[in-house]
Design a binder for these strands. Structure first.
Length: 857
RNA sequence: GCUCGGGUGGCGGAAUGGUAGACGCUGAGGACUUAAAAUCCUUUGUCCGCAAGGGCGUGCGGGUUCGACUCCCGCCCCGAGCACCA
């Protein structure tokens, strides 16, 4: 049953069908194991206070078209939605207003849900997840504990990015060009105790796995570049007149004979040991200067290189030559060994440095078409002792072999990828489920015969030392999960880098029982409490926002399951998303972290597939009408609620898909939506008479209608498969225009048109279908119409005629006409023949039923 | 700097070796209307021409081909990512 509206009243129609779908749970995903499954996933949104952005429904509409299409094709479709709701904006809102981020988040989610539902997406709302729901994040915490147990989580006191404005540590990825990604505030280096995840252990597998997924090449390339694997050698240089030696990493061992100096990063721990007395003052001054430089200054490529001689020399292991050791901030402590051999003849940076400080530049590679130094490619070796004459590739191997014999070097692999800094000094995140106890208490716990935690501990204990005391990490037991956030008076972090949770003393200070695993707050602990107890302090750091989004696609498979993160048989059935649609801004971080967790879960047997996302697609960005990024300050923001109010959800869905290729960046155009809106009205008027009743449709269609209908089914099907929705819509427009012109359209063709329109504009299609036929409860239950192949009924074709490659006309012929016959026809046509008279035909190229090209002289 | 993607009417875009500009927007003219909106019809790359017709045309310059927006070489411009990674 539809509405009773007489004209195309989209608000009434859309409200009616959305309510009906919700009531009937039309789009519930069932675990029907006899049916092939299709899992289509959107990157779930962060429910910001600003409400839904016009860009959100672009990806959601695309995935919805696929979901509805696949369902009509007979698949059992899973198309869920949820909320990535931990994160900084809610916390900053809390700091500003004092309102709890939990309440604020719930409000925002309610707004987002309502807005998303107003698009009529075929989502199974029974499976909604929310990363801030304790029943969700207990499993995020559980995964963390598994990582902990398997030695993939550790603490490290190390320099991290500290943003004093946000009062928080940021991950490398959250710092862009020396300022915070969010807010663009200045950042500095600060030493803090941090949780770190050992993603580097998975570097090779994260690289290899990319071969097996259907992802945009550019995204794969970005991940490859981020992992940054390189192969080369470690070479050890003895320091002259000193017991120390310097280890360097190079990808060019073939240039070893061209090394004329060695450079250490200013932070390299060897610097203070090897520096000569004469140079000490200059070196210390340089280090001091380097420290005060911001990262932006240090990495500024435009500035010239600087450095200081240490007074020490390193001995080149292959020829015994002493090379001056310099320090310079163009060498990074964090990559490789923090030290390099400098080969100015064959490295741009070393060349620039050597030029500036008058250091020898020695060519050891010769190449064809010799141009000037530096030359950084491969070639033939010169001035390289016994290796002279080899080409670079052979020389690399040969020189590494010699280094191995000399015990001065070996083959080595290096990655740009660093371990993942996993703790944040924030309130609004998942608490890290760990308790710290002092070392003597920890040893006492370990000595207990029936020590509960044995199976939850990593091989090597995790500990840190502060003010002379050593603390060891004890994981919470699964019984203690979820570890919920405590209530706090203030959400403001302290200036010393501690999370706001540190101020919730009654929450942080606890007693832990090594035998039962139980935890009780200090205030509940009395002298008479039975059992063995040890004092502890909860970890007060929380997890980064990435944590919850690392595994949400698994939770959708069994969102209410209470004894595992995903129910085994559900995971076996749904396996992984077949299609994942979301923005390219997540090309590296989210998609790399999720792959890391997934591979880990695969290793511990929690999931059965090695990769989380089979096929990935990035929708482009919708720009403002002026062609720039939508922003409040520019005043070019389009509000989806306004557009739906004015044109309806179907029109907005259709328009966003019609705008251009899904992956392209394209500007919004207010006039453009008028076009698709007219198309919908035209559709309505084609089916519905003035009084609101359905027009009569007979049993016969004209030939034209049959052909255009069939062609449209074929084109739209292909275009949906290839996510080319813009051309699918133009084909439907062509089809409708033909219908309107031809008028003799059968019931079957009238129904089929509505069916292929359904994934794009489901409300109007349901409404018209309910008046046209309505034998089934929803048009989405009808099987997708089939394309019957190219019609051979259409025999007369227009054949293009070219003479010397230039289009001169066309002729109407039977599609099977032979080449010779066509030349005769052309000769009889005065307008064509005039290009042939007095010329000889040298050659003809003939494509049957398409084109003929006559070459004359 | 390196890597990748792109450059087609007034605009969004179609066509990946076979009739460039589908489809939509806009503009112009017309029908209906007292009028307007809505709707419908015609037209809309550009130059010459009254017209018939013809020339030019997919960033620029070459090339391959019977035929190039499409493939190859060189250049210009725009966008994205990475950015002293040794």
């Amino acid at each position: 049953m539809g509405t009773n509206c007489v004209t195309y009243d989209f608000s009434a129609i859309e409200r009616h069908w959305q309510e009906k779908w919700a009531r009937d749970r039309t789009f519930r995903a069932m675990e029907d194991f006899g049916k092939k499954k299709y899992y289509v996933l959107d990157m779930f949104p962060y429910p910001s206070g600003a409400g839904l952005h016009i860009g959100h429904p672009e990806g959601y509409t695309a995935s919805d078209i696929i979901a509805r299409y696949k369902r009509a094709c007979g698949y059992n479709v899973l198309h869920p939605m949820g909320w990535d709701a931990f994160g900084l904006p809610a916390e900053q809102h809390a700091i500003k207003t004092g309102m709890s981020p939990a309440i604020n988040t719930t409000n925002n989610v309610d707004v987002f849900r309502k807005q998303i539902q107003s698009f009529g997406f075929a989502i199974d709302w029974d499976r909604e997840v929310n990363t801030t729901d304790p029943n969700y994040f207990r499993w995020t915490q559980w995964i963390f504990l598994q990582l902990f147990k398997h030695g993939l989580a550790y603490v490290d006191e190390k320099p991290v990015w500290w943003c004093s404005e946000l009062k928080s540590v940021l991950a490398n990825e959250e710092v862009i060009n020396g300022v915070s990604e969010r807010g663009e505030y200045p950042v500095e280096r600060k030493n803090l105790r941090q949780w770190v995840l050992r993603i580097t252990k998975y570097a090779d597998r994260l690289l290899d796995g990319l071969k097996d997924v259907d992802w945009p090449e550019s995204t794969k390339r970005q991940q490859v570049a981020w992992i940054g694997k390189s192969t080369g050698a470690h070479v050890t240089f003895k320091v002259e007149n000193h017991s120390a030696s310097v280890a360097i990493y190079t990808t060019r061992p073939d240039t070893l004979y061209g090394a004329t100096f060695v450079v250490l990063a200013p932070e390299h721990e060897l610097v203070s040991t090897i520096v000569s007395d004469g140079q000490r003052a200059a070196v210390e001054a340089y280090i001091e200067r380097a420290k005060s430089k911001s990262d932006l200054e240090r990495t500024d490529l435009a500035k010239s290189k600087t450095g200081v001689f240490t007074g020490a020399h390193a001995i080149n292991p292959v020829n015994g030559e002493p090379l001056p050791i310099w320090i310079a901030d163009y060498v990074l402590r964090s990559y490789g060994t923090g030290a390099i051999m400098a080969v100015p003849a064959h490295d741009d940076r070393d060349y620039e440095f050597a030029k500036k400080y008058g250091i020898e530049i020695r060519q050891v590679i010769r190449w064809e078409n010799s141009s000037e130094l530096p030359f950084c490619g491969d070639g033939k070796l010169v001035n390289s002792g016994e290796f002279t004459g080899l080409d670079s590739k052979q020389a690399k191997e040969a020189i590494i072999d010699k280094l191995s014999r000399l015990r001065s070097g070996s083959r080595a692999v290096n990655y740009k990828l660093r371990d993942w800094l996993f703790s944040r000094q924030r309130y609004w995140g998942e608490p890290i489920p760990v308790v710290w106890v002092e070392k003597p208490d920890y040893d006492f716990m370990l000595q207990q015969d029936d020590f509960y935690f044995k199976e939850f501990l990593p091989e090597n204990e995790i500990s840190y030392t502060s003010e002379g005391l050593t603390f060891c990490a004890v994981p919470l037991t699964p019984k203690e999960l979820p570890l919920a956030l405590p209530k706090v008076d203030s959400y403001i972090p302290s200036d010393n880098g501690e999370s706001p949770l540190a101020k919730a003393k009654s929450w942080t200070n606890i007693y832990i029982n090594p035998i039962s695993g139980e935890i009780i707050p200090v205030r509940e602990f009395a002298a008479g409490t039975p059992g063995t107890w040890v004092r502890g302090r909860r970890e007060t750091n929380t997890m980064p926002q990435w944590a919850g989004s690392c595994w949400y696609y698994l939770r959708y498979m069994s969102p209410h399951h209470s004894s595992a993160l995903v129910e085994e048989h559900s995971e076996k059935y749904w396996q992984q998303p077949d299609m994942y649609i979301g923005g390219a801004e997540h090309a590296v971080l989210h998609l790399l972290y999720a792959r890391f967790w997934h591979k880990f879960l695969y290793d511990i047997g929690a999931v059965s597939t090695p990769e989380p996302f089979k096929k990935l697609f990035h929708q482009g960005i919708i720009l403002g009408e002026d062609g720039t990024k939508m922003s409040k300050s520019r005043g070019n923001v389009v509000n989806p609620d306004d557009v739906i109010g004015r044109y309806g959800a179907d029109a907005l869905r259709l328009y966003e898909m019609f705008l251009g290729p899904l992956e392209a960046m394209k500007p919004w155009g207010t006039r453009g939506i008028e076009g698709v809106s007219r198309f919908l009205k035209k559709t309505w008027n084609f089916y519905i008479a003035d009084g609101g009743e359905i027009k009569p449709f007979g049993d016969e269609s004209s030939q034209q209608v049959q052909d255009v209908s069939n062609e449209t089914i074929g084109k739209v099907t292909q275009d949906i498969e290839n996510l080319r929705f813009n051309t699918a819509i133009s084909q439907m427009m062509i089809c409708l225009n033909t219908f309107v012109k031809e008028k003799s359209v059968s019931r079957v063709h009238a129904t089929q048109f509505l069916q292929i329109l359904t994934p794009f504009a489901p409300h109007i299609s349901e409404e018209i279908y309910s008046r046209l036929d309505g034998t089934v409860n929803s048009i989405s239950l009808l099987p997708w119409p089939t394309y019957t192949g190219k019609s051979d009924r259409e025999n007369a074709v227009k054949l293009a005629v070219q003479i010397n490659g230039k289009l001169r006309g066309e002729c109407r012929v039977d599609r099977n006409t032979e080449c010779d016959r066509i030349i005769e026809i052309v000769k009889k046509d005065d307008r064509l023949n005039k290009f042939l008279t007095g010329k000889t035909i040298v050659k003809t190229v003939f494509v049957p039923a398409k084109i003929i090209n006559i070459v004359v002289e």
